[in-house]
């Protein structure tokens, strides 16, 4: 796509403002995480401290089992992502390529659950998990998140862009569904699967309300819960430590995004199939 230079100047200004608005909080968080609390209060707008310190990070590692918490977050996000992608992909495959009675109705019902607010399912889920004896455990956090209508929706859309004739050729060659899925559909849907996975990972990584309900002991905490420890009224607000935890919280998803960004952008701009 070509934009003539005359058009591009105002557009660039818009882009720059947008980028500034998006980047500023991150730079602010990184900058503040290296300041002492006093320094931060005295010069809130200076992005970087003249006397940078690691004491905020030190505080986090001293006051909470920080490594365990990071590992918990990573475990939960990974397990949730793997299960969600597998269940979404299998369901999407069935919805696109299987012929069965009531398929459209079933799909409609499933997709309509996207519009259910989390708060509607929160209490029933909580009761089920605690009756299963899984409260204050990582499995309790993971279990209700293993399937996802939004993932099914996204992957169904992606699979629908694969020309049906490709599947028909494979059917004529007596391929099993398993072979078709592995050798044809999955490679062609890889950009969509990758970006959906990253999206799942980031959502699970950032999840706050549900872990707050389930997890009680600090050694089971996830990073967003740890973060909350430093800004709640109980612990007293120590916002430079909170900023340090924020930085740790965002590093992993950010790294993932940078690694796979070409897939993410690809999914939103084209189906990836020519």
């Amino acid at each position: 796509m070509k934009i003539s230079k005359k058009v591009s100047v105002p557009w660039h200004i818009v882009f720059l403002i947008t980028i500034f608005l998006l980047i500023f909080p991150i730079v602010f968080a990184v900058g503040s995480s290296f300041k002492t609390l006093q320094d931060a209060y005295n010069n809130p707008l200076s992005l970087f401290s003249l006397n940078p310190t690691l004491e905020n990070y030190q505080t986090f590692f001293d006051s909470l089992p920080a490594l365990q918490i990071t590992l918990n977050t990573f475990l939960i996000a990974s397990v949730v992502t793997i299960f969600k992608v597998v269940t979404s992909f299998l369901a999407a495959y069935a919805f696109v390529y299987f012929i069965f009675k009531g398929k459209n109705t079933l799909y409609f019902i499933l997709i309509s659950t996207i519009f259910l607010p989390f708060t509607v399912t929160m209490i029933p889920n909580y009761l089920i998990i605690s009756n299963l004896g899984l409260s204050d455990s990582l499995w309790g956090v993971v279990l209700p998140q293993l399937a996802d209508a939004m993932g099914i929706f996204l992957l169904t859309q992606a699979l629908r862009t694969i020309p049906v004739s490709l599947i028909e050729v494979a059917r004529l060659d007596d391929m099993s569904h398993w072979q078709i899925m592995r050798d044809i559909v999955l490679p062609l849907a890889r950009p969509a699967v990758t970006s959906t996975s990253i999206w799942f990972f980031i959502t699970a990584w950032n999840e706050y309300v549900w872990p707050v309900l389930i997890l009680k002991s600090t050694e089971n905490f996830t990073l967003p819960l740890a973060l909350q420890m430093y800004i709640s009224s109980e612990g007293g607000t120590n916002f430079t430590v909170a900023m340090a935890v924020s930085v740790i919280t965002m590093i992993i998803p950010l790294a993932l995004y940078l690694m796979f960004q070409r897939y993410i952008i690809g999914t939103f701009t084209s189906s990836g199939i020519k």
């Binding site: 028909e168 004529l172 007596d174 044809i184």
Partner: peptide, 17 residues
């Protein structure tokens, strides 16, 4: 289909991209 001993050429060729 797979058991009918047919080979087919599609209008859009349907090559695996």
């Amino acid at each position: 289909s797979g058991k009918r001993e047919v080979a087919m050429v599609f209008q859009n060729y349907a090559l695996y991209p």
